[in-house]
Amino acid sequence: MEYYLQLIINGLVVGSIYSLVALGFVIIYKATKVVNFAQGELVMVGAYVCFALTVQAGLPFLASFVLTLLFSLILGLSIERLILRPLIGEPIISVIMVTIGLSSVLKALVQLIWGTQIKVYPQVLPHEPIFLLGLPISPVYIAAFILAVILFTIFSLFFKYSSIGIAMRATAFDQQAAQSMGIGIKNIFALSWCIACVVSSIGGVILGNINGINSQLGAMGLKVFPAVILGGLDSLLGAALGGLIIGVLENLCDGLAKELFNLGGFKEVAAFIILVFILMLKPYGLFGSHEVERI
């Protein structure tokens, strides 16, 4: 029993990071209808920049965290301006491929600058586990979970009440109508990339604190697909819940496969088997908006 409880808790922690990455993905998809295959690489770049600032430049952790966010902001702006804007109105496959190209470039840059070795973050939070329900949990995990919850609350409020958030929702709903109401669509696109990059790099920094980072971190970006499909491609709440559910299910399946069938490495694929079932049964996910086809 305790084994499964441990699995669930680990799943929740991994899931909260999936949720953060999924949040970035959903924000981009919602506003610009771009499917971003480079989400994992944005996480990785954020993690490496923060690592470079704390360890290599010797800044205090908080300062480098803020600088990382600033860097991500600029990264998001330049990606949108240089790569995605020329492709507005191109077919889906072109947009998918350009983000795949972007992910190769980012991965290569990280490899060229920092090499392929695992880098370890300096210890920010204490290592002694906190006991919750009798289970030992590392403080980093709890911090990750709390940070994820805070970010989701902030963004939910932002989209609900701030005028920029409302403009972003309007753009997502109908670009032409939004434009005719005086909303600068291009600014909204740029903004959504900025937000997505910032959120991803927060995810990256948390991940770095948990496991250390290496240049394969970006592969985790693929895990975001089961999460967003489960939640619905354009729903923030869906991203949050989808990430958590996929994290937990993945850990449970992995644990079960190990116990029952002695199968190793099932974690890598469990989420995608779930994904196939979701796509067959409920392709718009839990909270996604259905596309209505009109001729």
């Binding site: 350009v98 190769s104 470039v105 991965k107």
Partner: peptide
């Protein structure tokens, strides 16, 4: 790394 980066860039 260079090969992968240049591949992405060309794409």
């Amino acid at each position: 790394g260079l090969k992968e980066g240049i591949f992405g860039l060309i794409l």
